[in-house]
């Protein structure tokens, strides 16, 4: 019994909390100066071999997901749990004045850590690029269909809004309609859909010397002996307002640095440009994470707890 109490006393101690906080501060500082999540060869090539070995040994290359961070974080969790349990039990046993602030903060942090852990195991995330009319299947019979995607610009040309208009269906039936923007995701059936990105698509129709039609997308090539012309962009010709295709020239697979802007009706090599269109597709972030309500509740606990602690200290002058 004595041993159990000693272990409990160790885990609830303030000294342990302080040691863990100091460790997490120092190690996190180091980790922020080391690029995270890159290939091992990067560290071996860019650091002295001893430093690189230490980075890889202590997994500073992916620090926040490594035992070097997760074990102290786990101990910190145990420390807060023991401390909170002791505080509540001790006050109840000795019928002391009720000061709930620190308990609420500690419980909030415990819930945050549980939420974070649950999220790391259960969270599913994907990115889908959809053109107008395209759909994406989700679990439990859900399906999203992109009805429209538009971009609004400020007068100086910078992007003001990306707007995706979605139809959400379930088992083939209409479920709901959603308009999503950055910072305004759509929520349904445990899913959140975010406006995360966009991509320009290029479609250039060419006719070769034998009259055959070819459809080129970005990166598509037109060969001519040892030279190739690669489609890299479609831009609007300022005076005429017409689209023209932009090709980069490569000889023997090496870039010559030459770039050709070809209008519709003109030719590149032996190829005649029939049409050139560009469009934007919407990049939608699809997230299924059921830890969000728990994390939001945890945050409310922390805020109320902090207000209770420090308003009492400041208003009543209890600052020691």
């Amino acid at each position: 019994m004595n041993m159990i109490i000693k272990i409990f006393e160790f885990f609830r101690s303030m000294k342990l909390a302080i040691v863990l906080i100091v460790y997490m501060v120092i190690s996190s500082i180091i980790a922020t100066f080391i690029p995270q999540g890159l290939d091992l060869s990067y560290y071996l090539a860019n650091y002295h071999h001893l430093v690189a070995s230490l980075i890889l040994l202590f997994q500073f290359n992916q620090f926040f997901y490594s035992p070097s961070f997760l074990i102290p974080a786990g101990l910190f969790f145990v420390n807060i749990c023991c401390c909170s349990f002791y505080r509540v039990y001790y006050r109840y046993k000795n019928k002391l004045k009720k000061k709930f602030g620190p308990d609420l903060v500690h419980i909030g942090i415990i819930l945050l850590l549980i939420g974070g852990l649950y999220s790391s195991f259960s969270r599913e995330e994907s990115l889908a690029f959809l053109d107008k009319g395209e759909s994406y299947n989700l679990k439990r019979g859900y399906q999203i269909v992109l009805k429209d995607f538009s971009i609004e610009n400020y007068e100086d040309g910078r992007v003001k809004k990306w707007i995706s208009q979605l139809d959400i269906q379930r088992y083939g039936e209409f479920y709901k309609e959603s308009r999503i923007l950055v910072n305004q995701p759509a929520s349904f059936g445990g899913y959140n859909i975010y406006q995360m990105s966009y991509r320009k698509t290029l479609n250039v129709l060419v006719i070769d010397s034998q009259g055959k039609e070819l459809l080129l997308n970005e990166g598509g090539v037109l060969p001519l002996d040892d030279t190739i012309f690669m489609l890299s962009d479609i831009v609007i010709d300022e005076p005429t307002g017409l689209n023209h295709a932009v090709f980069d020239e490569f000889v023997n697979r090496k870039s010559t640095g030459r770039r050709f802007k070809v209008n519709i009706g003109e030719s590149v090599a032996n190829y005649h440009i029939k049409s050139a269109d560009s469009d934007f597709v919407s990049g939608l972030g699809i997230v299924e994470d059921r830890s969000s309500p728990l994390i939001l509740i945890a945050m409310i606990f922390v805020i109320i707890g902090l207000v209770l602690i420090y308003s009492r200290e400041i208003i009543k002058g209890e600052v020691k």
Binding site: Q36, F64, G116, S119, R123, E125, V182, N183, Q184, P185, N192, Y194, M196, G285, V287, D289, S292, I295
Partner: peptide
Amino acid sequence: YAWGRFWGW
């Protein structure tokens, strides 16, 4: 609300 995650290191 912006990126679909509370924390990203």
